[in-house]
Each structure stands twice: as structure tokens, then as C-alpha cells.
């Protein structure tokens, strides 16, 4: 598989001696949905800012799509990555939905005559076509995040980073964004890197990187990483619900696999029940 993001021995300090990112390395495969999981203050948001060059690394190597991230290549790297930040209000730049999507296009020097077609296309992709002339104050948090995604998609990136993009949303908004992102990952083969502390979201991803005090503690497929209960708990993270149930049942002597995915667990339990 092609590696789209390669991070090698990355070091970053906000203050001298305080290693926010402490010599970490990881690789992300093209087209996958990866989550970086860690509690607040583990350094996970700093990684996002390093990857798009909003912060400058102390040492180490970041490669995006084979291109080295340095001052000269900054624009080349940024044009491959779109990022959705946590606060929906503070990343809405335009006066209306239309203007906000146009902002990125303006920066890319797209011909103004072509902008309306592009804006309509991506607004409809995130289901915001009826809101094109709405001002941000009239939109819900989930809608604003969808606009942010449309603005990013219009710039056709190959990677989307979600920096706790759903943590300020209500459950409805959260679900909308999660569904949208999964769909983009599948249909358009966009690589997703989601930075989160939501264990259930991590359980649905392809690859999990577990972060604590600026170090990668563990990484791998979710059903490897998320099955280590003690490790998760020691990092003040939750354990997937399906895992708690299936582990509990195993302790009672019931022959069942350990799951982190609820749907699969329900299926197996129902089969067992019908065989009884």
C-alpha cells in the first residue's frame, strides 16, 4: 500500500524542555480512516498543526504524498490536506455559506466564472444547497462543520484531518458529520485522519494510533489496540461498550469472541440464542 503520510522521529516543544511531541513515528496508508486517540492534553491536536505546517517542528521528518514538509513545499503539502477544526464558529470565514466555500477557491486563483458551479456541487455533497445564502449565526454547529467540509472538498484534497471536529456538536450534528466523513472515505477514497477521544469512533476506523504525553503508546488495527483494556484505562480512555459486554460474558464461561463492534456482537449473541 502507498503511504500518504510518513512521520519519522518528530519532535516539537512549545517551551524548551517540554516535549509536547516526543520523537514519534507513524505512517498512514492512502485511502484509510485512521484515528489518533488520546485524552485532552496528550498532544494529539499538536500533531494536526504540525502536519499542515501551522507549527514548525523542532526535528524529524514529515512527508505528505511523498513531499517533504518544509518552508518551500508548504503550499504543496497544504494543498493536499484539508483540516476541520474543533470550534465551528471560528473557522467560518465568509459572511454566508456561499462566500465561505468560495474563500478557498479564491486562494487557489480559480476563475470566478467557474466558482458558482463548484460551490453548488460541493454544497449539495454536504447537503447544504438550501442554505447557500445563510449567515453563520443562523446555522447549527453541525451545519457549520458541513460547510467547513464543503469548503475543503472544493479544494480537492487527498487527505482530510478532523481535529476533534465533532466534540462541540450535539449528537445529531455528530452523527451527520461522522456519516459524511465515512462516506467521503469510501466513495472518494479520501484519506481520513481523525483526532478524537471517542473510543466508539475509533472502533469504526481502519487504524488506531494511541497517544499519551506526546508519545505513541500503541498503534494498529482497532481490534488489536482497543482490546487492551488495562492500557486504555491507564490512559484515562474508555473501553468500547461491545468489549465490556463480550469480555463479561467470557468471564462467565460463555464461548464467545471478544468484540469492539456492537453490530457484530449482537449478531453473534442472536445466533447463540437461536441455537439454544
Amino acid at each position: 500500500m502507498e503511504k500518504i503520510i510518513e512521520v519519522k522521529d518528530l519532535l516539537f516543544e512549545y517551551e524548551e524542555g517540554l516535549k509536547t511531541i516526543n520523537h514519534i513515528s507513524f505512517q498512514i496508508e492512502k485511502g484509510t480512516y485512521t484515528t489518533i486517540l488520546g485524552h485532552n492534553g496528550s498532544g494529539k491536536s499538536t500533531i494536526a498543526k504540525l502536519l499542515i505546517g501551522l507549527l514548525a517542528k523542532q526535528s524529524g521528518e514529515i512527508k505528505v504524498g511523498g513531499i517533504d514538509l518544509n518552508e518551500e513545499n508548504l503550499n504543496k503539502v497544504r494543498s493536499q490536506i484539508g483540516i476541520v477544526f474543533q470550534n465551528p464558529d471560528n473557522q467560518f470565514i465568509g459572511a454566508t455559506v456561499r462566500d465561505d466555500i468560495a474563500f478557498g477557491l479564491e486562494n487557489m486563483c480559480v476563475d470566478p466564472k467557474k466558482m458558482d458551479t463548484i460551490i453548488n456541487e460541493y454544497a449539495s455533497k454536504v447537503n447544504m444547497l438550501d442554505f447557500l445564502d445563510h449567515e453563520p449565526t443562523k446555522l447549527s454547529g453541525g451545519q457549520k462543520q458541513r460547510v467547513a467540509i464543503a469548503g475543503i472538498l472544493a479544494m480537492s484534497p487527498s487527505i482530510i484531518i478532523l481535529d476533534e471536529a465533532t466534540s462541540m456538536l450535539d449528537p445529531k450534528g455528530k452523527k451527520e458529520i461522522n456519516n459524511l466523513v465515512h462516506q467521503l472515505n469510501k466513495d472518494k477514497n479520501i484519506t481520513i485522519l481523525s483526532i478524537t477521544h471517542d473510543i466508539e469512533e475509533a472502533a469504526l476506523s481502519d487504524y488506531v494510533i494511541l497517544l499519551n504525553s506526546g508519545k505513541v503508546i500503541d498503534q494498529g488495527k482497532p481490534d488489536e489496540v482497543l482490546m487492551k483494556r488495562k492500557q486504555l484505562e491507564s490512559l484515562s480512555l474508555d473501553v468500547p461498550f461491545a468489549y465490556k459486554i463480550s469480555e463479561g460474558l467470557r468471564k462467565q464461561g460463555i464461548q464467545i469472541e471478544t468484540y469492539i463492534n456492537q453490530e457484530k456482537l449482537v449478531k453473534e449473541l442472536c445466533q447463540l440464542h437461536s441455537k439454544k
Binding site: K244, L269, L272, H273
Partner: peptide, 24 residues
């Protein structure tokens, strides 16, 4: 929905596990 008969007001995971175990 699939044939279990579990009291839906159970709030506690351990209690639920016991209940499921009892019905398998």
C-alpha cells in the same frame, strides 16, 4: 428484537452481562 427477554431498564453493564448469560 431477536428473541432475548431482557428488562430494558437495566442501567449497569455487569447486571446486563449476567442477564444475557442467563438467557444463553
Amino acid at each position: 428484537k431477536h428473541g432475548f427477554k431482557i428488562d430494558s431498564s437495566i442501567k449497569d453493564v455487569d447486571q446486563l452481562v449476567k442477564e444475557i448469560g442467563g438467557q444463553l
